[in-house]
C-alpha cells in the first residue's frame, strides 16, 4: 500500500461556523494505480491533492504514507518525505522563468545534493526520453504550452518519485497537446509510476483506472 487516508476532515472557521473543505475522506491507494479526481469547482479536489502532497495540513483523521504516520510527523519530516517520493505537475506548468530547460530539470537534483556527473546523466536521460534535447538551452517563455508542460512532467519525474500528483495538467493546453500529455501519463503508469490527477474533463478522466468524485468535500 502506497498511502491511506482515514476519516480526513479539513475545515475553516467562517463567522463562528465551520465550513468543511474535506469531510470524512477515506482513500487507499496502491502502488501502480492511476486515479482521476473529478468534481465541480469548489468541491475540494485541489485541497485533497494538496493534503496528499503534504503541502497542506488537515484538522482531523489519519494519513499514512508508506507506513509513516504523516499526521504525527514534524514539518521537516513531512517535507523530506514528499521531496523523496512525490513529484508535482501544475496546471500553469510553474517552470522557473530564469532557467533554461536543462537547468529547470537539474533544479530538483541540486536540492537533493546529487553529484555533478550523475546529474548530467539523469538530465540527459530525461531530455532524451521526452525528445526535447534540441530545446535544452531554451527558456520557458520560448516554448509552447504543451512543450512547457512536457518539461514540467519531465522535471517531476527526474527524481524518480513513486507518486505523481497532477493538478489539472491539461487545463491550459489545447486538446491535441492535452492528449499527448495524457498518453504520456498512461505510458508512465504502465512503467509502474502511481498517478493521481485532478481534472474537469470526462475524456481525460477515462485515462485513469479509478475515478473518484467529490462534492462539497465529500466522496460520492
Amino acid at each position: 500500500m502506497l498511502l491511506q487516508l482515514n476519516n480526513i476532515f479539513k475545515w475553516v472557521q467562517q463567522g463562528g461556523q465551520r465550513v468543511f473543505l474535506l469531510k470524512d475522506i477515506n482513500l487507499e491507494v496502491e502502488e501502480g494505480e492511476f486515479i482521476s479526481v473529478m468534481g465541480p469547482s469548489g468541491s475540494g479536489k485541489s485541497t485533497l491533492l494538496n493534503v496528499i502532497g503534504m503541502l497542506d495540513t488537515f484538522d482531523e483523521g489519519e494519513y499514512n504514507f508508506l507506513d509513516e504516520p504523516v499526521h504525527q510527523l514534524k514539518e521537516k519530516h513531512r517535507s523530506n518525505l514528499y521531496k523523496q517520493y512525490i513529484g508535482f505537475v501544475f496546471q500553469a506548468y510553474h517552470l522557473i522563468d530564469e532557467l533554461t530547460v536543462y537547468e529547470n530539470l537539474e533544479m530538483p537534483l541540486l536540492y537533493k545534493k546529487i553529484s555533478g556527473s550523475e546529474r548530467k546523466a539523469m538530465v540527459a536521460d530525461m531530455l532524451d526520453r521526452f525528445n526535447i534535447v534540441g530545446k535544452k538551452d531554451l527558456f520557458p517563455t520560448q516554448l509552447s504550452g504543451g512543450q512547457q508542460q512536457l518539461v514540467g512532467v519531465a522535471r517531476a519525474l527526474i527524481t524518480k518519485p513513486k507518486l505523481i500528483l497532477a493538478d489539472e495538467p491539461t487545463g491550459n493546453l489545447n486538446s491535441k497537446q492535452g492528449e499527448d500529455i495524457m498518453e504520456l501519463f498512461k505510458q508512465l503508469n504502465d512503467e509502474g509510476v502511481t498517478i493521481i490527477q485532478v481534472t474537469h474533463s470526462e475524456k481525460n478522466a477515462e485515462y485513469g483506472k479509478r475515478i473518484i468524485n467529490l462534492l462539497d468535500g465529500r466522496m460520492v
Binding site: H94, M107, P108, Y111
Partner: peptide, 16 residues
C-alpha cells in the same frame, strides 16, 4: 512567491 512555491515543491528548504 510563485518562485518560492515551485522551489519548495522541488525540494528546497527555507534555508536554501
Amino acid at each position: 512567491s510563485k518562485d518560492v512555491g515551485i522551489n519548495k515543491t522541488l525540494g528546497a528548504s527555507s534555508k536554501n
